[in-house]
Simulated assay, not measured.
Amino acid sequence: MRHNRRLRWAAIPIAASLSLVLAGCTQAQLNGFLPGFEDGAGPATNHTERVSGLWVTSWIVLLVVGLVTWGLTIWAVIAYRRRKGQTGLPVQLRYNMPIEVFYTVVPLILVLGFFAFTARDQAAIEQRFAEDEVDVRIEVIGKQWAWDINYIDENVYSPGIQGQLDDEGPSGSLVQSELPTLYLPVGQNVELKLEARDVIHSFWVVDFLYKKDLIPGKTNYMSFVPEREGTYAGKCAELCGEYHSLMLFNVEVVSQDEYDAYIESLRDLGQEGQLSTEYDRRQNQPGPGAPELNEEQEAE
């Protein structure tokens, strides 16, 4: 009884100290210093907190495991060190069943736990919206070394060119106005259809904390809700050739009115319709999308 009372009295100051420390943390600190969070503002998308939660929880568990492991190691070094006057080897034990069970079962539980929570969160993030729940449908096509964007519902498009060096700016800087820009309306259910024209690319918006591969001959999807207006940097995260480092883009999350105005600006430029697969380089190669050969061509 006295022992339990001591534990309670010890827990009170510890809990108070933790509360004080956590209360003084910024949004970045509370979310493991990951991008996608700003003080006084919500997360970038509806999935961002889920990703950061898995990240932070995993690190807390790993830090606890590390502290326990180092604590036991240091304790063993001190408690079983060679004392003055001791000679020879200490008593040798063939095995210690409780310890062997401990260091077999605990890692197994940790691995299964990490797998279960990762699979749960991945399934939630990968879940596509139902057909009638999608507010905005956009097709993003990766190519060496830029991005083409089809706004499917509005039947307009925006062709992209690779990053252009800014001759008037600092060395290595790019002309931001010439980077492909994907516009998204804030608070809407967005579904991105991801395609590749040539080789494997990877669509990565850094602050969204998620990326998805673009694979020739295969269509991938991303479903999410952009929840904070702003400009977000994006890039290809899969080495795709000589100018991979210039395969950049921006994402503009704007109000519905600004989004509608941008769509109208594309119409004013005559960019109505959709960019098709006629420019896909893989059509000239064996594999998915290759044109069928007639008998004479096959004989050749």
Rank of each mutant, 00 (worst) to 15 (best):
E292K: 14
Y103W: 14
F115Q: 10
V199R: 02
E278G: 13
D39Q: 03
W147A: 00
Y210Q: 13
P159H: 06
S245A: 13
D280P: 08
P35M: 03
R281V: 13
F224S: 00
Q297L: 15
E264R: 07
L179Y: 08
W145Y: 15
D121R: 06
L239T: 13
N220A: 14
P170R: 01
P107G: 09
P180E: 05
L179G: 02
T69G: 09
L246S: 11
L20Y: 08
V206W: 09
P90A: 01
D135I: 08
D167H: 12
T48Q: 06
Q256H: 05
Q86P: 12
Q29C: 04
W59R: 12
H3S: 13
E252S: 01
A123L: 03
D280M: 04
Q29N: 02
E195L: 15
I125G: 02
D39A: 10
C236W: 03
E126I: 00
Q297A: 12
G85K: 03
R228N: 02
D148T: 04
Y259C: 03
F208S: 02
R94A: 11
Y157C: 07
I12N: 09
I152C: 12
D213F: 12
V140L: 09
K143A: 10
V77E: 10
Q274A: 14
A41N: 14
G289E: 04
D166P: 04
G53N: 13
R282H: 11
V77M: 13
G71Y: 01
L110H: 09
D207T: 02
G273I: 10
T45V: 09
P180M: 04
V136I: 15
A44W: 09
E168A: 15
E296H: 10
I138D: 02
T73A: 06
A237I: 07
P226F: 01
P216K: 05
V51P: 09
S52H: 07
P159F: 01
H244S: 08
S177K: 05
S177I: 00
D167T: 14
L93T: 12
E264V: 05
A146M: 03
D213K: 08
Q127R: 11
H244P: 01
Q127T: 07
H244L: 00
A44K: 06
P90G: 01
V64T: 14
R6K: 14
A237H: 08
P180H: 06
